[in-house]
C-alpha cells in the first residue's frame, strides 16, 4: 500500500518534468529525425517519401564530412583546454580564503553576463589584423606583417574556451568542494606528499566533475553557432552554422534535420559515455 502510494507520489512529482521533456525534447528530436528521412522538395520543403539520401549526402560528400570532422575537432580541443585551464582555477577557488576569491568567481561568470555583440567586438579589437595583439607585436619588432589570428580555428577555440569556462569550472568546483577534507589529511599522515595527495586522492575523486564539465563544454561547443560564425569567418564551418543555414535560411529541412540528428547523436553518445563511466566510478 505504502509503496504504491510512494510510487504514485513519485510519478506525480515527475509528471511536469516528464511532459516538459516529452514536448520540448523527445518530440522535437523525433520530428527532426523523421524529417531527415524525407525527400527534399523545392516548394513543399519536404516530400513524405522515405529516403536515406540526406544522411548519405552527409557521409559521402567530403564537404559535409569535413564540417562534421571540424566540429568534433574544435569541440574536443575546446573541452581539453577548458579542462586544463579550468581545473587549476577551480582548485584554487575551492581552497583559497583569499579576498580574490569573489573577484575571480566574478571573472569566471562574467562572459555569461556580457552580450555576444560586445564580446565579439572585444575579440575583433584584440585579435584583428589592426588589433591590439598584432599592433603590439609589430611595435615590439617581433613581426613585420600582422598575423592572421581572427578568422582561424585557434581564435574560435580561444573564444569558445572563454565563454564556456563557467560550464567547466562550476561542476569542477562542486566536485572538489564536496570532497571530505579528511581524505587528503589521511593521505598525508600515511606519507603522501602534496603532489601524491593530489594525484592519488583529489584528482580521481573529482572525476565526476571532470566528466560533467567536459560533457557540458563538448556538447555546447559542438552545437555553437554564433562564435564560429563571427570569430571563425568563412574558413571555420561547424555543424551548428550549417544547421542554422539549412533550416532557417535555405529551408532545406530534410538535410538540416539530418545534420541536426547527427549532431544530437554525437552529443548523446558523449552523454552516454559520461553516464557509463560515472556509474563505474560509483560502483
Amino acid at each position: 500500500m505504502a509503496a504504491a502510494a510512494d510510487r504514485r507520489f513519485g510519478i506525480g512529482l515527475l509528471t511536469p518534468i516528464g511532459l516538459l521533456y516529452l514536448f520540448f525534447l523527445i518530440l522535437p528530436i523525433g520530428f527532426f529525425l523523421s524529417m531527415g528521412f524525407f525527400k527534399y522538395d523545392v516548394f513543399g520543403l519536404y516530400k513524405p517519401e522515405l529516403t536515406g539520401e540526406n544522411f548519405a549526402r552527409l557521409v559521402v560528400d567530403p564537404y559535409y564530412l569535413d564540417i562534421v570532422a571540424l566540429t568534433l575537432k574544435l569541440a574536443g580541443l575546446t573541452t581539453l583546454f577548458s579542462l586544463l585551464l579550468g581545473y587549476p582555477l577551480a582548485f584554487f577557488l575551492t581552497r583559497t580564503r583569499s579576498a580574490w576569491r569573489g573577484a575571480l568567481m566574478f571573472l569566471v561568470v562574467a562572459p555569461l553576463t556580457t552580450g555576444v555583440i560586445v564580446r565579439t567586438y572585444g575579440w575583433i579589437v584584440l585579435m584583428g589584423a589592426e588589433g591590439i595583439v598584432n599592433k603590439t607585436l609589430i611595435a615590439a619588432g617581433l613581426i613585420a606583417r600582422p598575423l592572421q589570428i581572427l578568422h582561424t580555428e585557434t581564435a574560435v577555440v580561444i573564444a569558445l574556451v572563454h565563454i564556456l569556462m563557467p560550464y567547466m569550472v562550476f561542476p569542477l568546483i562542486s566536485s572538489l568542494a564536496g570532497q571530505d577534507p579528511n581524505l587528503e589529511r589521511a593521505a598525508s599522515t600515511l606519507g603522501a606528499s602534496r603532489a601524491r595527495c593530489f594525484l592519488e586522492v583529489t584528482l580521481p575523486l573529482s572525476r565526476p566533475g571532470i566528466l560533467m564539465g567536459s560533457v557540458l563544454v563538448f556538447t555546447l561547443s559542438a552545437g555553437s553557432v554564433v562564435i564560429p560564425q563571427l570569430i571563425g569567418g568563412k574558413d571555420v564551418q561547424m555543424m551548428g552554422q550549417s544547421i542554422y543555414e539549412l533550416v532557417l535560411h535555405t529551408l532545406n529541412w530534410p538535410l538540416g534535420s539530418a545534420m541536426a540528428s547527427l549532431l544530437v547523436l554525437l552529443q548523446f553518445s558523449i552523454i552516454f559515455v559520461y553516464f557509463r563511466s560515472n556509474r563505474r566510478v560509483r560502483r
Partner: peptide
C-alpha cells in the same frame, strides 16, 4: 605529516 610517522584514524574513517 608525512615525516612524522604517525597513524591517524578519523572519526569518519576517511577511507578513500
Amino acid at each position: 605529516p608525512p615525516q612524522r610517522d604517525m597513524g591517524l584514524v578519523f572519526q569518519n574513517y576517511a577511507l578513500f
